[in-house]
C-alpha cells in the first residue's frame, strides 16, 4: 500500500522568535528553519510501516517556498521514496492546504495519509481534519499508537481525559501526537541517497484550486511579558509570601 505524508518547513522549535517591529509578522530572515516536529513523527511512522512490510511506497508532500525542497529531502533521507512540492511564496492557510492535499490524494490514491497534528508556527491544528472532511474519509487525530489490520487502522488517540482507541476503515487520515514514535536521524549514506530521489515541483495554479487566504492578519504583536519576580530563601518564606502577599493559599 501507499502512504502519503505531509511536511512543513517551519521556524526551528529551539528558536526564540521575534515579532517584526512593524507588527506585520515574525522575523524569518536568517532564522533556522526545520521540519515541523509533528511531521517528523509522521514521516517516521510511515517509514516504520514500510520497514514492517505494510507499505510499499512513501510519498512526501510539502507546500511553500522553494526551500521547502530541503524539508522534503530530509524526509526522503529518513526513508521517503519521492517528493511533491507545491511551490508558492504566498501565504497558505489550512483550508487551502487541505484543498491542495485533496487534489494530490485523488491523484495518488494512498490508503493512508499521515500528517502532523499541528504546525508549531501557526498552531492551527486543522489540516488533517479538513482533508478528511473534504475527502469524506474517516480520521484518527492525535495518534499515539497505530496498528494496521485487514484494511483497517486501529489507532490510540491522546485526548484530554486520557487515551481513546478507534478503528477506522482505510483509506483514512491520521494525525500524529508526540508519543507515536521517536523520529530517527538520517544517516549520512541515506542523506546522500536522498539527493537522487525524485521531487516533482508543481504550481498551485496547475491544480485549479483556489488558495486565496480567507483570513487577513491585521497585526502580530508580542504578548504581555511576565517579569521575573523574586527568589525566596526557603520553604517558609515561600509559604508566607503565598499566604500573605499573593493570597493564593
Amino acid at each position: 500500500m501507499k502512504v502519503l505524508v505531509s511536511v512543513k518547513r517551519v521556524v526551528d522549535y529551539n528558536v526564540k522568535i521575534r515579532v517584526k517591529s512593524d507588527a506585520s509578522g515574525i522575523e524569518t530572515t536568517n532564522v533556522k528553519m526545520s521540519m515541523n516536529p509533528f511531521d517528523e513523527i509522521a514521516v517516521e511512522e510511515a517509514v516504520r510501516l514500510k520497514e514492517a512490510g505494510f507499505v510499499g511506497e512513501i510519498v512526501v508532500v510539502s507546500m511553500g517556498v522553494a526551500q521547502s525542497q530541503e524539508t522534503i529531502r530530509t524526509a526522503l533521507a529518513m526513508g521517503g521514496d519521492r517528493g511533491i512540492l507545491v511551490q508558492t511564496d504566498d501565504e497558505m492557510q489550512p483550508l487551502a492546504v487541505a484543498k491542495i492535499m485533496k487534489n494530490i490524494v485523488q491523484k495518488e490514491n494512498p490508503e493512508l495519509v499521515i500528517l502532523g497534528k499541528q504546525a508549531i508556527d501557526d498552531d492551527s491544528n486543522q489540516t488533517g481534519q479538513m482533508l478528511a472532511a473534504l475527502l469524506g474519509r474517516p480520521q484518527a487525530t492525535f495518534a499515539s499508537k497505530l496498528f494496521l489490520k485487514d484494511n483497517r487502522a486501529v489507532v490510540t488517540r491522546e485526548v484530554d481525559g486520557g487515551l481513546e482507541t478507534l478503528e477506522v476503515r482505510l483509506p483514512a487520515i491520521l494525525t500524529t501526537d508526540l508519543r507515536l514514535n521517536e523520529p530517527r536521524y538520517a544517516s549520512l549514506p541515506n542523506i546522500m541517497k536522498a539527493k537522487k530521489k525524485p521531487i516533482d515541483i508543481i504550481l498551485p495554479s496547475a491544480l485549479n484550486v483556489d488558495i486565496t487566504p480567507r483570513l487577513t492578519t491585521l497585526k502580530v504583536t508580542e504578548p504581555p511579558m511576565r517579569k521575573a519576580g523574586i527568589k525566596v530563601a526557603d520553604v517558609h518564606e515561600l509559604v508566607a509570601k503565598l499566604k500573605n502577599e499573593a493570597k493564593v493559599i
Binding site: Q93, P94, L95, A98, D123, S124, N125, Q126, T127, G128, Q129, M130, L131, A132, A133, L134, Q139, T141, F142, R157, E158, V159, D160, P213, R214, L215
Partner: peptide, 23 residues
C-alpha cells in the same frame, strides 16, 4: 479548544468552506 473541539471543528469548517480560527 479542547481535544473534543479540535477534533471535529476543522471538519465543520471544511464542509462549510470557511477558514476556522483556532484557539
Amino acid at each position: 479548544s479542547t481535544t473534543f473541539g479540535k477534533n471535529f471543528m476543522p471538519r465543520v469548517a471544511a464542509l462549510l468552506d470557511v477558514q476556522q480560527i483556532s484557539d
